[in-house]
C-alpha cells in the first residue's frame, strides 16, 4: 500500500532527529539541512543509511544528493552552476525545487530542505 505524504514526512522527521540530534519541532518542511539543521557533509551518508533502513529502500549513490555534479568542471565554474549544469540538475533531481536557485546558482546557496527528502522518498515509493 502506498504511503501518504504525511506518513513519509513523519518518518523522515524521525530520521533527521536521530541523525542530526535536533528536536522534532526543528524539522519543518522548509528547514534546510545545512543551514537550519546543522548537517555536515558526513551526515548526508548517515541520512541515506537511515532512510534506507526506515523505508526499506535502496538509495543509489548520487540519486538523492548528486554530489558528482558539483565536482564536474563542465557543470560548475567559479563556484556557480552553469546552464548545462542546471539542466543536468533538474533532470537528476525532479524532487528539488530550483525556483530560487536558478536566479543565483551559487553552489553555496543550494540548500536541501526537509521537503526535498520527502519529495524524493515519495517519488521513490509511490512512483
Amino acid at each position: 500500500m502506498a504511503m501518504s505524504r504525511d506518513e513519509i514526512y513523519k518518518k523522515v522527521q524521525g530520521v533527521l532527529v536521530d541523525a542530526l540530534g535536533v528536536d522534532d519541532e526543528d524539522v519543518t518542511p522548509d528547514a534546510t539541512l545545512r543551514g537550519d539543521l546543522g548537517a555536515e557533509s558526513i551526515d548526508f551518508l548517515d541520512i541515506v543509511f537511515r532512510l534506507e533502513k526506515a523505508f526499506g529502500i535502496k538509495i543509489p549513490r548520487g540519486e538523492m544528493f548528486p554530489e558528482d555534479i558539483f565536482s564536474n568542471a563542465a557543470y560548475v565554474q567559479n563556484g556557480r552552476v552553469t546552464p548545462e549544469g542546471l539542466v543536468e540538475l533538474k533532470k537528476r533531481m525532479p524532487h528539488m525545487d530550483f525556483t530560487d536557485f536558478e536566479k543565483d546558482p551559487d553552489i553555496n546557496k543550494m540548500q536541501f530542505t526537509v521537503n526535498t527528502i520527502v519529495n524524493y522518498i515519495e517519488g521513490k515509493l509511490n512512483g
Binding site: L45, F49, R61
Partner: peptide
C-alpha cells in the same frame, strides 16, 4: 553491520 555500501557502513 547494518548497512554496507561503496561509501561506508553503519
Amino acid at each position: 553491520i547494518d548497512q554496507l555500501s561503496e561509501q561506508g557502513a553503519s
